[in-house]
Design a binder for these strands. Structure first.
Lengths: 338, 338
DNA sequence: TCGACAACTTGGAGCGCTCCAACGTCGCTG
DNA sequence: CAGCGACGTTGGAGCGCTCCAAGTTGTCGA
């Protein structure tokens, strides 16, 4: 056993080189699949590496080459299917390209998100994708400075950060229009509070109601992006006495919580109240639920974020904003009012 | 601007040292929060680092210190809530401890899982957590060799690999017993095919049926861990003519697919057929679904896997197997047969 | 047969950090 | 006032790899 492998427990490039009787540089070339190595030598090196159980050390490679082949991802919350599906989209494309993902979740608190972002930056990944970050735009921009960076789900005004978003205003308008076309007038919006995208959805709702001539019946119930918030909102509506004929929920989870509580009170969906969600996560598609909702192409958005990142790495300087068009998915929770 | 920062675009420890008029080693000590630095110097260094915008390079640190403070996670599929919830459990504990997670998903194919594991190993993470790997136990054992490793969701017989599992046989028995106690006799099992845990659940079902004296009515419908498999199974049952009075599905998704298709045929759940799932992912708890199921403490399992890993890193030699007790969660999809 | 030119190889200088032996300094003790 | 720890601090030798300038071969036409 060589000196090195005795030290660290790992076989190193030096070990392979010594054993194969070639130089370390040659082994390096073989490992990097250079075509400047004669077939004979290549085979010799590969066979030796195999025999010794050599595995390249990515850490050392990264340090020496100043490139990591890794993209850092800052997620809000793995638990939320919306984020998981975006991550999945990134992941699949990345692994096709031979990129690795370093995933860190920021958790609910802004404070922690900052710490996590800080940690992520220490890894010197080739780029960064932030999914619905809670941090302020200026803070993000300052932190990531020179690193290629793409933000998903929010607009960040900084010339060196790209954004992948959906047109939230259009999404809201589409939702409201769908309900209006069915004949609804009393349409309530349950919002997403501080969450990313909540603001634009809320104002989109307001404008859509106005342009439909329904400004006077517009009403926003404060919420959050959770099922519980939907339950609370339902209770609030029930307590208020007269129910609206339709509800536009900030996301699918809110819609589901709402529907459940209303159902418990004998209110039928969509007969008595129509409900539309947002995101079209796989949960909305589940058959016992069959929620009408606004689709965001999560998979595609993840994929595109990575694509933009690669463009940046390859030198693109000008800023890119990708605005996806949200689309209406009609299922079983909306119908004409009685 | 120093030589270094001009080269790589980053401020290095040398830059800070030079600027502060101390040695690089001192800066290193400060960055590692050593208490062998005088308060005066510490402050000087920190202030200088702050001023220059210095951020430690984790890559270099890892190479020099032979420890990464990072744990590698190999997940089957981020999209499946079961895995996402386990990852979430690991993540929360890890970030409390200051550990990072390098998450890689193996995807469906075994071939790709092998490549991903290989890639993960190159990162020389301090440890490895494999969640329901598809690779054979011997292959896993050979690959991870000397690295601390914990497998979740499956038994791997290798003295240097720990396992965190639930007692699948007990889970199956619990499910069957619940149905038997309600008065069911014709209980069918839809299995998980090749997936991790499918085998033990299947045989657990068989044994439970036997000991309930129902061996003759036992029947296994081949499936997979997906909603679609549940749909197919439902069609198969419908085509077979006489329906069982109860179904034990391999997991929640299968149960949901099954319920949906049966419902489409006018079959009421649980009035006509009782259905019980497995996993108790958050989907099962959603109110429009309210699936009776067997709970696996996913969060806790993730947490424990990491805890075991840390023990290994701290020198534990003997093997640990943690067997969690699955528990019955009764909701609205099971009842006495008519 | 010789030189030129490919095609391959190689030594060595880093990458940015950790770690350790060694080196001041000091305030004290005898 | 020499001698001695204790405490801070430092230089330098790596960690395992990449990358490049500088060899070393081999081939081929003149």
């Amino acid at each position: 056993m060589s000196v090195n492998s005795r030290r660290t427990g790992y076989v190193t490039m030096d070990d392979v080189a010594r054993e194969a009787g070639v130089s370390r540089a040659l082994v390096s070339l073989v490992m990097r699949r250079s075509d400047k190595v004669s077939p004979h030598r290549r085979e010799l090196v590969l066979a030796t590496a195999q025999r010794l159980g050599y595995r390249p050390n990515a850490i050392a490679r990264h340090l020496a080459s100043h490139t990591t082949n890794t993209v850092g991802i800052l997620l809000n919350d793995l638990h939320n299917p919306f984020f998981a599906e975006i991550a999945n989209g990134i992941e699949q494309y990345a692994s096709d390209l031979g990129y690795r993902l370093l995933i860190i979740t920021g958790g609910r608190r802004q404070q922690r998100e900052r710490a996590m972002l800080e940690a992520l930056l220490e890894y010197r990944t080739d780029g960064l994708i932030l999914v619905s970050p809670r941090l302020s735009g200026t803070e993000v921009a300052a932190d990531v400075a020179s690193l290629p960076c793409v933000v998903i789900g929010r607009r960040v005004r900084s010339s060196h950060i790209d954004c992948v978003m959906t047109d939230e205003a259009l999404g809201s308008r589409t939702a409201v229009q769908h309900l209006v076309e069915l004949g609804h007038e009393r349409i309530v919006h349950i919002d997403g509070g501080q969450g990313a995208g909540a603001g634009p959805r809320r104002s989109g709702y307001r404008r859509a109601m106005e342009s439909a001539g329904l400004a006077r019946t517009a009403m926003v119930v404060p919420g959050e992006f959770t099922e519980d918030a939907g339950v609370s909102a339902a209770e609030r509506l029930l307590a208020a006495g007269e129910l609206p004929t339709a509800v536009f929920a900030a996301n699918d989870l809110v819609a589901i919580g709402l529907i459940d509580r209303l159902a418990q009170h004998g209110i039928r969906i969509p007969d008595d109240v129509s409900v539309i969600g947002y995101d079209n996560t796989f949960v909305a598609a589940l058959n016992p639920i069959r929620l009408t909702t606004i689709d965001q192409p999560r998979h595609e958005m993840g994929r595109e974020a990575l694509a933009l990142l690669l463009e940046r790495m390859n030198g693109r300087e000008e800023r890119a904003i990708r605005l996806h068009e949200p689309t209406l998915v009609v299922r079983s929770t909306t119908a004409a009012p009685r």
